[in-house]
Design a protein around this nucleic acid. Structure first.
Lengths: 107, 107
DNA sequence: CTTTTATTTGGCTATTCTGCCAAATAGATA
DNA sequence: TATCTATTTGGCAGAATAGCCAAATAAAAG
């Protein structure tokens, strides 16, 4: 198929995928509290700064984040407060999620 | 670290990851309209039935879906209507997402 | 009990994603 | 201009995912 044309489910999956990593969730959580520069987020995540920079660029490209340069720093922030609603939904799912013990029972 | 202990961001990322694929988004969209059996979802997705079955098991394990067997069929359904809210948030992000043309301009 | 239908599981390959290091860039400061 | 600081990019190796086929299960129907 034409790779230029994304279906709705592909678009949605791309945007969702941009949050589907523990470090990116952590970054999103931190930014829901206000903008942060790359160094600060790197301390938070505990990975190499180049790794964090790549996570940020994925999140920016997908539309979750925007960035503003001031002085030597790049300040990243959330583009939409709906993220909190998004996490609320995820946490609801976690409540009904089958527990590991249920799945691992015997066998 | 102890692999038994999942941090909040890991839990959230796992649940989000379970929707981070075009076929799984498609499945979720279909199920928001009511339960479906594996065959029907397979037609919808257009992949091998074993592939679809694996997608379903990922979604079930994460808590998004539940399943009920009736006769020869397994009927899958959404566990929580909050999914629609979730997609609404994703679609909002899509509106502010940087366009490909903006990114691909020259070079 | 055998066969049929629906679904899941195992196994393998191909692709995509992650994370680190090293090098490049961009601006600020000396 | 040279240097420092913050960040991004390139590249590579290892890990995780996705998809297909074939085989295994499970229950219904004959």
């Amino acid at each position: 198929m034409n790779p230029q044309i994304e279906t709705r489910s592909e678009i949605r999956a791309d945007i969702i995928k941009a949050l589907a990593h523990p470090s990116r969730v952590l970054i999103a959580e931190a930014l829901s509290d206000g903008e942060r520069c790359v160094q600060d987020l790197t301390k938070l995540v505990g990975a190499d700064i180049s790794t964090v920079s790549k996570h940020l660029s994925i999140m920016k490209k997908s539309g979750w984040l925007e960035v503003e340069k001031r002085g030597l720093n790049q300040f990243y922030r959330l583009r939409c407060p709906c993220l909190l609603e998004f996490f609320r939904c995820v946490d609801l799912i976690n409540l009904v999620r089958p527990k590991k013990t249920e799945n691992q029972a015997c066998c």
